[in-house]
């Protein structure tokens, strides 16, 4: 038996597979698909993808999650808790990267400083390797996330506040203004 309507676009077949069509559209396309093996295969391929995705199990919150949220709210530490999240989270990677990028520069600077000191005070006993290691350790510290003390977070709060506002502002400008088609992402 020949299908009554012509084959649908793939996007339409996808919408059918995911139940995104209105009942009238779904009814019409369903009639076609029952008679058209090519369209049926496409619909089944999307259903297959959907089924495969089932295997990805979700992560559960850690047992301390509720108490962390409640403690932050109870202490009224909303801003610093936000900073804490930002520092441990978004900025952790940022600092980690920056720290890593800056490490060679800092080491070079430390070596330069040490060299100058050595040149100026040739006779004084110095420990250049120790000093260099100290610099590296200081830079690397934020990468662990846990290495940041609450005091240091509070000390840098204004900078991070600005970053947070900026980040959200940038996101809003990234989102499409109208309800147009999304770009490539």
């Amino acid at each position: 038996m020949k299908p009554k309507i012509r084959c649908a676009e793939r996007e339409q077949l996808f919408a059918y597979a995911c139940g995104m069509l209105n009942p009238r559209e779904a009814g019409e396309l369903g009639t076609h698909i029952r008679q058209c093996e090519a369209c049926l295969r496409v619909v089944e391929s999307y259903r297959w993808v959907d089924e495969v995705l089932d295997a990805w199990r979700p992560e559960e919150p850690s047992p301390s999650f509720d108490s962390r949220v409640q403690a932050a709210i109870a202490t009224g530490a909303t801003t610093s808790a936000g900073l804490w999240a930002r520092l441990k989270g978004g900025l952790r990677d940022y600092w980690w990267g920056s720290g890593r990028r800056l490490a060679p520069v800092m080491v070079a600077m430390a070596v330069a400083v040490v060299s100058v000191v050595v040149l100026r005070e040739r006779h004084a006993p110095l420990r250049p390797p120790g000093q260099t290691q100290q610099v590296v350790r200081t830079i690397k510290q934020p990468s662990s996330g846990a290495g940041l003390s609450q005091a240091s977070i509070e000390a840098s709060s204004s900078a991070v506040d600005d970053y947070d506002i900026l980040a959200n502002f940038e996101l809003l400008s990234e989102l499409p203004k109208g309800h147009g088609k999304p770009e490539d992402n």
Binding site: E59, S62, V69, A81, W84, K88, G145
Partner: peptide, 10 residues
Amino acid sequence: RSLAEDLAQE
């Protein structure tokens, strides 16, 4: 996971 929990808390 750790970043996700921080974001969820936020």
